[in-house]
């Protein structure tokens, strides 16, 4: 299976083996987070940018547990509801970490955490002009995805269901249409609840899957992280293998000739 071993994907000129990107929120503690990351095999993690707790400067920090030199930190703009907020956040992130590969999300409302595509597109244009490489959380709209790509998004990341909902991939048709039309990597970002959901995303031809809550809120996050690793690999292999056609009725697997 040498061809599987060599199966990599590339975003903004950077090549990765793992097609799973994991978040770092909602874990019990940093140690559990680091253990889950290890089990997931992920090479990229999303991180948020927040104010330092000035009253407790010695509180443990994420970077003490997950080495930014070994894992690619992907700063996000979670919690930003305007292009200006998101751009400000990523400028700070670049200064704090020195990374230009970022995850842009501009939210439209708190109830659904659906992206505001007008603000998202605006932010994408500004960030690209400033030299950022934005991977962009977006709606499952093939036209919007194309507009983002034209604006310079280095990856398109449509939701499979609302953030944190765990509802699974609700939009297989539109995800597939986005995959077919995209010239940059497509990753399902949000909606995965369990391993089979990740496999579905990969079977649709996505280049990867990004998830946080499905692992962090599992009863055993480290075990679920491993399950997600395997599911992403299985889904990818199934996509590459090319699934059988479906039939309306049964078709025997054993030969009919030579029956006694």
């Amino acid at each position: 299976m040498a061809e599987t071993d060599a199966d990599t994907w590339t975003v903004a000129g950077r090549t990765f083996r793992s097609r799973l990107i994991v978040g770092t929120g909602k874990y019990r503690d940093f140690a559990q987070n680091a253990a889950a990351l290890e089990a997931s095999g992920a090479e990229i993690i999303t991180v948020a940018v927040r104010r330092v707790n000035v009253s407790d400067p010695n509180a443990p920090m994420l970077t003490d547990f997950i080495d930014p030199n070994k894992v690619t930190y992907l700063p996000n703009t979670a919690g930003c509801f305007t292009a200006d907020e998101a751009i400000r956040t990523l400028r700070l992130a670049r200064e704090a970490g020195g990374w230009d590969l970022v995850k842009l999300e501009v939210l439209g409302e708190a109830r659904t955490l659906y992206p505001d595509m007008r603000e998202t597109l605006k932010a994408t244009e500004v960030l690209v002009a400033e030299g950022f490489k934005p991977m962009v959380y977006c709606v499952d709209d093939p036209i919007a995805a194309k507009q983002l790509e034209d604006a310079g998004a280095v990856a398109i990341m449509p939701l499979g269901a609302p953030i944190g909902s765990g509802l699974g991939i609700q939009n297989r048709v539109t995800i597939r249409l986005i995959v077919e039309g995209a010239g940059v990597p497509v990753l399902v970002d949000a909606g995965v609840g369990t391993a089979s959901d990740a496999a579905v995303a990969m079977e649709l031809g996505c280049d990867g899957v990004l998830m946080n809550t499905a692992i962090a809120e599992a009863k055993e996050p480290v075990r679920m992280a491993r399950a997600m690793k395997l599911a992403v690999e299985a889904g990818r292999d199934a996509y590459l293998a090319g699934r059988m056609a479906t039939r309306k009725y049964a078709d025997p697997s054993s030969p009919l000739a030579g029956l006694i």
């Binding site: 999303t46 991180v47 104010r51 330092v52 704090a96 944190g164």
Partner: peptide, 10 residues
């Protein structure tokens, strides 16, 4: 002044 750093997030 705003002083920020990286924290866990999705």
């Amino acid at each position: 002044l705003e002083i920020v750093h990286f924290v866990g997030g999705g």
